[in-house]
């Protein structure tokens, strides 16, 4: 075999090639799993078409920023459903990480000469790209349902979607490092996804929650998912919510650092795991 020797230094082009390769694989997996795309789309659409229609009459909404007038419940709930797509996508990525670890495919990724933070980061970004495509398809369908934010909102929401997608994906990545078996994933659904979604501003404004319980309001206000929703909500109307921006960015750093720590061979649970990756 000639020319066997691998290069000693990883050039910028090699980093880009690795990133593109990881992204391409995620895209191929996504395309091959059409059911996953449909499920990701049907879930928020059911909420929009059925839940929102039913609750429109029950839940009164006052004028709260970024809205400058009374809005239909469908309009209010749409940013929350965008974040829900990203939350489920993050968990789906987490599930596929655990699955890859059980089957052995994860080892292929981790024995690459690139540093682990880069490999995990690339996988995270690839997942976010997929989730953003899903969100835009959802927003396009919602437009036909009368949810029509200003046109520039479709552009200004993009950075918010990138940030919230990264934060929720990093959370999934962090969780995946702690889940030992695929069977434990149902627990994550019950103890992470549902509480995060329902204890947030996705379905009802926080002031409504405060009317029922101050403690519940405070929990919702501290929920990172609430800030992802609010970041998207404001961005969809061309505005920035500084508190949500700071909270989402902070959580992203925290979750990603946690995931890198946990996947480090010398630290975290990974180091104590017997029987392989």
């Amino acid at each position: 075999m000639s020319d066997r020797h691998s290069p000693q230094i990883l050039t910028p082009r090699m980093w880009l090639t690795a990133f593109m390769g990881i992204t391409r694989r995620e895209a191929l997996r996504f395309v091959n799993q059409r059911g996953r795309f449909l499920a990701a789309l049907v879930r928020p659409l059911v909420w929009l078409f059925i839940f929102a229609a039913g609750f429109r009459a029950v839940l009164g909404l006052s004028i709260t920023p970024p809205y400058q007038t009374y809005v239909l419940y469908e309009v209010y709930v749409t940013p929350g459903l965008c974040a829900m797509i990203q939350l489920f996508n993050g968990m789906q990525s987490s599930l596929s990480m655990v699955y890859d670890r059980e089957t052995g495919a994860m080892r292929t990724l981790l024995v690459s000469p690139f540093p682990r933070w880069f490999l995990l980061g690339s996988k995270l970004v690839a997942g976010v790209i997929v989730s953003i495509i899903q969100v835009y398809v959802f927003l396009a369908i919602a437009w036909f349902w009368g949810v029509d934010p200003p046109l520039f909102g479709y552009i200004t929401v993009l950075p918010a979607l990138v940030l919230s997608g990264l934060m929720l994906g990093a959370m999934g990545l962090f969780l995946s490092s702690a889940i030992r078996q695929l069977e434990n994933f149902a627990g994550v659904m019950n103890f992470v996804i549902f509480p995060m979604f329902f204890a947030s501003s996705a379905l009802y404004p926080l002031w409504r929650m405060a009317e029922s319980s101050t403690l519940l309001h405070d929990i919702c206000a501290a929920n990172p998912f609430t800030h992802a929703v609010e970041l998207i909500r404001f961005a969809l109307y061309g505005q920035i919510n500084p508190l949500s921006l700071a909270a989402v960015t902070g959580c992203l750093i925290l979750f990603f650092a946690g995931a890198v720590f946990m996947y480090d061979p010398s630290k975290g649970l990974w180091a104590r795991r017997k029987g392989g990756a």
């Binding site: 290069p7 090699m14 390769g21 391409r24 191929l28 997996r29 052995g104 990724l109």
Partner: peptide, 23 residues
């Protein structure tokens, strides 16, 4: 254990692995 992605083709798996080495 199996490390190839069963849903992808052999070529897709190999190019993915090559990318992980910057090729």
């Amino acid at each position: 254990s199996r490390a190839l992605d069963a849903d992808l083709t052999v070529a897709q798996n190999l190019t993915y692995h090559a990318a992980l080495h910057g090729i």
